[in-house]
Design a protein around this nucleic acid. Structure first.
Lengths: 135, 135
DNA sequence: CTGGATCCACGCCGATACTG
DNA sequence: CAGTATCGGCGTGGATCCAG
């Protein structure tokens, strides 16, 4: 069977929120990553998505289903079981996510440095020089 | 001198708003594209950005300056003149925008088809089959 | 377990008016 | 020309409760 999702697969301390690239809405990119290695159940996806509510998760998944990014399979059991899986179209987003990650590794520190320098400049604090690949 | 920006460089009928990829906030990606071929003045950028208000444009530009994506140069003249230019860091976003465009050419029609089929399904209308690279 | 239904807080951003 | 100031709508998404 598929290994379980790492609850910490999205490090809350990772500054990805500063990333100038976004895949879909707030959660879509992370959901794609959750489904990367195979189908997952609703509550399984929910775990790494620290604090997403059921409402928002089901809304996001339905929007993704509507756009043909995932397929939803409901089993008429009790308790109910529903599984989500990436479509080939959904899988094409993985390459974009990868591009975003590559960019982020190469350039996000530079952006963060610039932001910090800018804000220090506003408060009149002199800023120690930084060395980054760009700039 | 640099040729003027095409007022229609962002076709309002282009379904790019359905794109599941976004660079920065709502306008950042388009601003980067406006600055691709050289420095531009405030009102010059404003033209292709159909309907952006001065307030939002200056806010967006200041955020981009803060993040080290553009440099702002003000000339102490009258009337005032201000120019914006991409930094090397800002230029790195061009490759990402290109990746998004490539994805869009290859897969956005599929996504739009799926969306249309989904919504037709909701209204009980049968949907004529479509042929797209994915799915 | 997998959501739907409601209510609400917040932030983006557009409209409008004004300024150096 | 290049902004700033202020107001407000509207949509996203969080909290909470409820249901099959």
């Amino acid at each position: 069977m598929l290994p379980e999702l790492d609850p910490d697969m999205f490090d809350p301390l990772c500054p990805s929120s500063a990333l100038p690239i976004q895949i879909g809405d707030k959660w879509t990119g992370m959901i794609v990553l959750c489904l990367e290695h195979g189908r997952r159940r609703f509550n399984e996806i929910k775990v790494p998505l620290r604090g997403i509510t059921s409402k928002v998760l089901s809304e996001t998944l339905r929007a993704m289903e509507r756009d043909g990014l995932v397929v939803r399979t409901a089993y008429p059991e009790n308790p109910p079981r529903v599984e989500y899986e990436l479509t080939p179209l959904g899988r094409t987003l993985l390459t974009l996510i990868d591009a975003a990650r590559t960019w982020s590794r190469a350039h996000l520190p530079t952006l963060l440095d610039a932001r910090q320098a800018y804000e220090a400049g506003l408060t009149g604090q002199p800023v120690p020089p930084v060395t980054s690949p760009d700039r």
